[in-house]
Design a protein around this nucleic acid. Sequence first.
DNA 1: CAGTGGTCTAGACCACATC
DNA 2: ATGTGGTCTAGACCACTGT
Lengths: 257, 257
Amino acid sequence: MAQPRHVKITDSLRERIARGDFSENDGKLPSEADLTAFYEVSRTTIRASLLALQNEGLVRSQSGVGYFVRRRQPYSYRPQDDLGPRPANPAVDHFLESAEDRKPSQEIAVSYVQAPDFVAQRLDIESGDFVAVRRRRRFLDGVPYLINDSYYPRDIVDGTEVMAAEDIARGVNRVLAERGYEQVRASDEIHLRMPYPDEVDALDILPGTPVAVHVVTGYTALGRPVRVARNVLPGDRHVIRFERAVAPDPAARRTST
Amino acid sequence: MAQPRHVKITDSLRERIARGDFSENDGKLPSEADLTAFYEVSRTTIRASLLALQNEGLVRSQSGVGYFVRRRQPYSYRPQDDLGPRPANPAVDHFLESAEDRKPSQEIAVSYVQAPDFVAQRLDIESGDFVAVRRRRRFLDGVPYLINDSYYPRDIVDGTEVMAAEDIARGVNRVLAERGYEQVRASDEIHLRMPYPDEVDALDILPGTPVAVHVVTGYTALGRPVRVARNVLPGDRHVIRFERAVAPDPAARRTST
DNA sequence: CAGTGGTCTAGACCACATC
DNA sequence: ATGTGGTCTAGACCACTGT
């Protein structure tokens, strides 16, 4: 037997899921007992296969109920929305506006902390220096969609409304701009990994769901970094989208048309 | 007992890993036998914990040898490198050039296929229409780093060198530009998920490693889509980076400085 | 050969959801 | 009360890696 039984069963179930064999009943799979009977193996072996499918993000289990095929309906996440003009209704920002039918809400906590390494590096300060943080958790229809921690150098937010634990209608970036720290450039980094336990809790993340960690550094026209934002996005709820314009390549122009 | 034993053990091991307790010996963990003795549980329970750590991407197992702490050294992936001027040495493209010390190589296969849905939609053609595809798998020091499938409308690549199964020194985008299809704008979409079995094979992906699927659509100045590229990136080998310039916000300017 | 992880079984008990 | 998944055990055999 080239392949172990649990692998063959996993493959078989994956195919049956892809074929839509379990599309009835909210995508409910047969019970472990039924599957042990069908594949003629022990319950342990069936559970190994179901666990594998969970870790691939294809299936979720609900204790006392059964296993269900997962389906995703991602929300568009646009890094470019964090800068630039605000939408017409100043009470909501882009995140909220593009939420379509879904009801947005958020939790905010503000504090001063010693800069973590990744912040200190990007803000070009010492690692122990204090920085201002706005920590937000954002929801759509009560479902957590993202963690956003925004870090600012102390001196540029001290004494402003930025450190109020409320939504800032104009947006923090606008407030900074008014103080002379308009951001004209940003760099984006995206890391992929499996979530840590605290992220699993904070974002209600199911097994087999990766996260993207999106770190933005915003710069003024003078090249000073004034903002580091760290976003954590569950992979099953987001598609990251952005647009690029390309500087024309003169070498190509010579021969074209 | 609030938490099951295997969860407590997983937490304990995760902490010990974070503390660097296993930094000796290539990051080797104690054997399953040692762990069963240490935590005083059955081997099954220990294996459940180790499996969980694998699926979090923290640990890898090597049959007959042991479990090892994983560490990542990601390569910078820059979506913006695919358009724009080529580097000085025309024999390599940006992917190759930015590889630093590591030896790049690639496999190329070209063909005509019926456009998959995601391609047809983005190229604005019918779903059954034939398109040209260049499929590439790229390596650094023999390690697969990415799958790149680039789709082009038939009419604009027919009779060109694009359909040769070799590296095109100038780059396909340059060839298209010379034919009058210069791309001046691109849209990017990034999806996150766990890899499919064929991707696991093609990219040597370990358990607990997510992938990013990066789909680029390139447009000419007339707004015609002429390229759809689908990249699959293993999360442990990439950091996605890009830069943005922000159009100044006139409302903010009024009061600033 | 000894040690390691990989596969598989049969069985027991529990917590939870549903009727 | 019944059925579901979640936890845990003890034990067996195998395949692979290293000495």
